[in-house]
Structures are given as C-alpha cells and as structure tokens.
Design a protein around this nucleic acid. Structure first.
Lengths: 323, 323
DNA sequence: CGTGGCTGGGAAATGCATTTCCGAACCTAA
DNA sequence: TTAGGTTCGGAAATGCATTTCCCAGCCACG
C-alpha cells in the first residue's frame, strides 16, 4: 500500500483537493489562496513528495530532456561541445542525455534504435559516418525531432549545423603558403565522416604535387604519434601539416619534438578544432577558432523550429606552431 | 484523434489482442505463435510504432537511465570518467544523463533539486564541494539511489568510491624525494572539494620547511599557467611540483617551458589524474595511473546494492617529467 | 471420450500527474 | 437584494504500456 507518495497524498495531508494541489505546484491556471498554497507546500516537504517524472512526461508529452549523440566524449572537441550544450540547457531547465558512439556506426545504430526508451524530446546527433550513419538517423528522424551537428549523414532530411570545411581548409592552406611552405601534409582521421570527406576533398582541390593526405584511424593522441612516425619514415618534401583535429595535432607535435624536430622551423603545424589544446600546446597551435558556442546556439535554434542547413564561417587563429 | 500510434493500433492492425502484441514486443511471459509474432512486428514497422517511453517508465517504475553529475565535463579527467560510464552502460542497454555543475555548488543544488524531473533510476555524483554540496546531495538521497564518486560531501549517507588520496600523495612525495628533490610545491584547485582537502592535508602532514601549497581557483589549463607565473615570481627553493590534476600540470609545464625553464632539470612535475594528457605532454607527466575504469566498476556495483565506501589504491606511473 | 496443457482474447486494473467540467459556496459591486 | 465574478471541491478523462484474471478454443495423451 503506502509505497510511493503521490499528489493525492499531498492533497489529503494539506486538506485540499487534487486540482488545487496541482495548481499550487504547477504554478499556473488559477489563483490560489496563499494560505492553501502554503499548506500544500508544507505537505510536500513533510511527506518528501517528488513529482513522478514519468507520469508527468506521459501527461505533458514532454520531458525537458534532449539527447546529444557524439562520437567520443573523451575527444576534447566534443567534450567542449557537450559542455556548451549543458551550460545552455541548464539555463532553460532542461537536461542532456549523452550518448557516446565511440565513432562506431554500429554502436550508433544500436543506441539510436533504443532512443525511444530514452525519454527525450529531441536528438542532437553528430553522425559517426557519412554513409553508414544515414539509415539509423533517418529512421530516428521519423519519430523524433533531430538536428545534425558538426557532421552530416547521407540521405537525412533533418536540418544540420556545420562548419564551412572547405573555407577552413582554404584558410589554413593559404596561411601556410603565405608563410612560405611548399609541401603540405593533411593528417586526417575518421575518413568516412562528412567533415573528413569535405576537408580532404577541399584539400585535394587546392593541392599541388608535393601535397599529401594521410588517413589515420581515430581522433586520438596516439594517431598523431603514429602519423609522426609515418612522416619521419617517409619525409618527402613536407614542411607543413594540417591536422583535422587538435588532439591529433597534439600527438603529432609531441612526437616530432621527441624525434628532435623543431616546430615550426622544420614543420609548421596547424589544426582544426580550436579547443583548449591548441591554446596550451607548446608552441601554441595555429588552428581554426572554436565554433562550439555558435554551433550550439544554431542547433538549438533549429530545434525550436526552422529547417535547412546552417553553415558557420571559420576563423583563423594564428599561434606559434605555424611560424 | 489519430495522432500518436499506440500499442492498441498495432494490435488492431496485426489482428491480435493488446496483451498478445505486448507479449511479442516484451518478448516474455508466454509463448506466442511465430505467425502472430511476425504479424505484430510487421504492423510495428508499417505504422512506425515506437513504444512510449514515458508510459513504459510509469508502468515499470524504471527508466533504464542513470544520471552522472560531474563538476566539469571539459576536464579530461571527468570526460574519461563519463566515457567509461557510457561504454559500460551501453552494454547494459542503459543511458546516461550528464549534468555539468561547472564546479559550482549553486548549479549543483539547482540541478539536483530538479532531478526528479530527470527520469533516472539512480544518480552518480561527484560533489563539487565537501561542505556546501552536502545538503543537496543528502536531500537527493532521500528520493533517489545515490553513489558518490571520486569525491564526497559532508553528512551524506550514500556510499562512495574514491581514491586513497593520502596514499597517492605519499607515493608522489616519496618518489620526488627519492629523486633528490628537496622542496616541493603542491598546486591545488577546488580547495573545498573532498579530494583537495584530503590531498593537501596529506601533503602538509608530510611536508618539510621548504614545501608549499598553492591554491588555484579551477582545474584548468589557465590555472596551471597562472601557477607558473606565481612560482616564477616567488621561486623559493622549489625544485618539484605536484599538481592535483593533469590539466593544471599541462598548463604549468607549458608555461614553465615558455619561460625558459627545463623540465625535469629545473622542476620535476607530477600530477594526479592519469588521463591521456599525462601520456602526451612533452615530457610525459609522472602521475598516478588512471582509476576511471575501477571507479566506474565499483560505483556501478554499489548501485546494484551494497553500501559503505570503496577506497581505491593509487599506482605510480613514472614518466620523463620527474627526471 | 475425457482431462490436462497451451495459447489467444476481452475487460479491466495499475502507475500518476494534469486538466476539464460543473456545481457549490462566497464575496463584491450595482 | 441581485447579478456577476472568483475560488474550491468531486468526479472523471487523458496519456499509454503492461499485466492480471478468466474464459474459450484446440491439441494430445491416456
């Protein structure tokens, strides 16, 4: 019997009706005698009443929760993105369900398929892959409001927010050329993500004969270290590097320095994300500035209505790593 | 009217009863004719039926979701912790609601107070402060299953998992002394968190006359940089540093190198968290190994029952930064 | 032929907050 | 005093999945 405390228990204790108690707690509808309101609030305290979130969500058809699906929360870029969402949603009294897909379309598909169990009103998703994420996200979009963030997936109608990756590549390439660099290596990862596809395509379109692309498996420090080994084993004429993530650039920078190379003298290094990493590496990384705040703002706006795609303009932040 | 599709619509379309449809989807209870099961599943696909999570949660009194409340998701230590939770819970078909309190007991209190709206079965919390987080967490523990992770708060009954901070400090101090360092500076932050309190207390108990403690406001790269400035302005005899977070050590290391100091020749640097940062800094940071996995395992075990506190033993990982 | 063992169906209860519909009671202004 | 306005209470509907109760069929085995 007397298991959980419901609103009717509160009403009983306060000596008021259920509708009245609800009016007090919901705060709206009609005016309530302050005396009664006080009795209701006291009853809540005394009984330790907590509104049942599931019942409330069922009735109101709304949970005040969003899901954000990122490829790797341990990647500083996505951690800063999630942090920005969290801060902004806190102000709106909403909560964030975080899903880490580990850059795997399989995990992503499983998680998105289970999203109906997740009690969220909408989903912000950074698709793991361009091709292989499409089906799961399109399916999800049939039942949920979805916005694609930072990356896109093929065949998904849902609106998206992303960086103008081609413009970003152009900024970096022009900057390196202006500094007299002749031969640029692009170190990429997650090559089947839309951002990688856009970045490598833009790079190849601008590239000269000495320019190369190196694909690493993941956005990790380890990938940067491995990339450095590969570069040192086959140095070519390379005198400048564009990493598609700060975290890879960090590993690369560290490994090159360990190998006795000087940055930026031997190699100019630049990267994309603009996380705190670029600001703290030694030397600081020339990078495209952080777009997390703008991306968060735009994607939440899209959630509240509106369709179509938002493309954010990148901005070059010059630090020591490019000379 | 014909708005959302419910289970009865599926049953109708499949030409079966509601209980039968439920038996098919829930998968248990009684055997169902495979023929009927197929019809039900087809009806689901055709109608695009998604179970209503709120109704399900209301009926089953369970949401398959946990909340994890961390002081700062952008701090690599907590990002790795959240990532570890996410990976483990994914395997159990559960979801994670992430709350970022920004190291603020006020935000923490507000968020925990709203936790009943959050549709979670339990809460894993890293208290922002030892003193000022107690009330809100104790209050939350009245209505939710709570486990304190990494840090504790005063007066909370909920079980906890944490590092043996005193042992960690001892490991680092002994290591630095064994390397011939005479004068150690501990750079701390969030001094009102339980881990800070334990670490500084342990340090002071072991400290000699040349040893000092410097309190910074936050676990950020910027704090490390500021600490370096303060140190250089008042160098004393300091020849070794213990940072209570990798991320602070990173800023400190970088700033000292910028100022022309050599690590480890001029300063040996050590830190606590064992995140990927310690592995990638140049030189690598001597640190206590990562306890995220063990902490996650222990805290989830506590959630499934059991009370009391789990104290994890630290392990010293020696890298170049300590000579 | 009879009985135990399965499986399906219909009706209804359960979980709980929110909200609507009225009727009853009371107060104020004309 | 009367008309109009305000506020509260009781009952009930709504949102939807899950599950129980029990009654019919249908099979097979004895």
């Amino acid at each position: 019997m007397g298991a959980r405390i419901g609103l009717k228990d509160v009403a009983l204790r306060a000596g008021v009706s259920v509708p009245t108690a609800s009016r007090v707690l919901s705060g709206v509808q009609r005016n309530v005698d302050p005396e009664l309101a006080l009795r209701v609030r006291n009853a809540c305290d005394e009984l330790g009443y907590k509104v049942n979130a599931a019942a409330r969500a069922l009735r109101l058809q709304s949970t005040d929760s969003l899901a954000v699906v990122v490829p790797a929360i341990a990647n500083a870029y996505f951690a800063e993105l999630v942090s920005a969402y969290s801060r902004r949603l806190d102000l709106q009294g909403k909560r964030l369900v975080t899903i880490d897909t580990d850059e795997s379309p399989e995990i992503e598909q499983r998680q998105l398929g289970a999203m109906d169990r997740a009690l969220v009103d909408a989903v912000l998703v950074v698709p793991a892959a361009f091709e292989r994420s499409g089906a799961a996200i399109a399916e999800l979009a049939r039942s949920h409001r979805v916005v694609q963030v930072d990356r896109r997936a093929r065949g998904v109608e849902a609106p998206s927010v992303r960086l103008d990756n081609a413009a970003g590549v152009r900024l970096l390439v022009d900057h390196l050329r202006a500094r007299g660099r002749r031969s640029i290596l692009m170190v990429d990862a997650q090559e089947d993500s839309s951002s990688s596809i856009e970045r490598t395509a833009a790079f190849r379109a601008l590239a000269g004969p000495g320019d190369r692309v190196l694909d690493m498996p993941s956005f990790t420090v380890a990938s940067g270290i491995d990339a450095a080994k590969l570069l040192l084993a086959d140095p070519g004429d390379t005198d400048a590097i564009i990493c598609t993530a700060d975290i890879v650039a960090l590993g690369l920078l560290t490994a090159l320095q360990h190998a006795g190379k000087s940055v930026p003298t031997d190699y100019a290094i630049t990267s994309f994300d603009g996380t705190y990493i670029s600001d703290t590496a030694a030397p600081g990384l020339t990078t495209l500035g952080s777009t997390a705040e703008r991306m968060v703002e735009a994607s939440l706006a899209l959630l509240c209505g509106g369709s179509g795609d938002v493309v954010l303009e990148p901005e070059l932040v010059i630090r020591g790593s490019s000379g």
